[in-house]
Computed example of a mutant assay.
Amino acid sequence: MSNQWIVGVDLGGTTTKLAFITMDGEIVYKWEISTDNSNEGQFITSNIEKAINEKLNDLGQTKAKLLGIGMGAPGPVDYETGTILNAVNLGWKDNFPLKESLEASTSLKAAVENDANCAALGEMWKGAGNGAKDLVCVTLGTGVGGGVIANGNIIQGINGAAGEIGHITVIPFDGAPCNCGKTGCLETVASATGIVRLAMGELKKAESTGELRALLVKNGKVTAKDVFDTARNGDELAQQVLNEVSFHLGFVTANIANTLNPEKIVLGGGVSKAGDILLDSVKEYFAKFAFSAVRKSTQLALATLGNDAGVLGAAWLIKNKLNQ
Rank of each mutant, 00 (worst) to 15 (best):
Ile154Ser: 00
Pro97Val: 04
Gly160Met: 02
Ala161Met: 00
Val9Phe: 09
Asp174Gln: 12
Glu123Pro: 02
Asn258Lys: 02
Leu98Thr: 08
Gln299Pro: 01
Leu237Pro: 08
Ala301Thr: 03
Ala293Leu: 07
Gly13Ile: 14
Asn219Val: 12
Leu203Phe: 15
Ala238Thr: 09
Glu54Leu: 04
Asp10Val: 00
Gly12Ala: 15
Asp276Thr: 15
Leu56Cys: 04
Asp94Lys: 12
Leu121Cys: 08
Lys30Ser: 14
Thr183Arg: 09
Val136His: 01
Lys65Thr: 02
Met124Glu: 10
Val282Arg: 06
Gly160Pro: 01
Ile27Leu: 02
Gln4Asp: 03
Ser246Trp: 01
Ala51Val: 04
Val170Ser: 03
Asp280Cys: 02
Gln61Trp: 15
Gly41Asp: 09
Thr298Met: 04
Val294Ile: 12
Lys273Asn: 14
Leu108Tyr: 14
Leu212Val: 10
Phe291Ser: 13
Gly157Leu: 00
Met23Glu: 05
Met23Tyr: 05
Gly8Gln: 12
Thr83Pro: 07
Gly313Tyr: 05
Ser191Gln: 02
Leu90His: 10
Asp235Pro: 06
Trp31Asn: 07
Gly143Lys: 10
Ser107Gln: 15
Gln240Ser: 15
Asn53Ile: 02
Ala64Asn: 12
Gly234Asp: 05
Gly220Ala: 09
Gly82Gln: 03
Glu263Thr: 10
Ser2Leu: 05
Ile171Phe: 04
Gly201His: 12
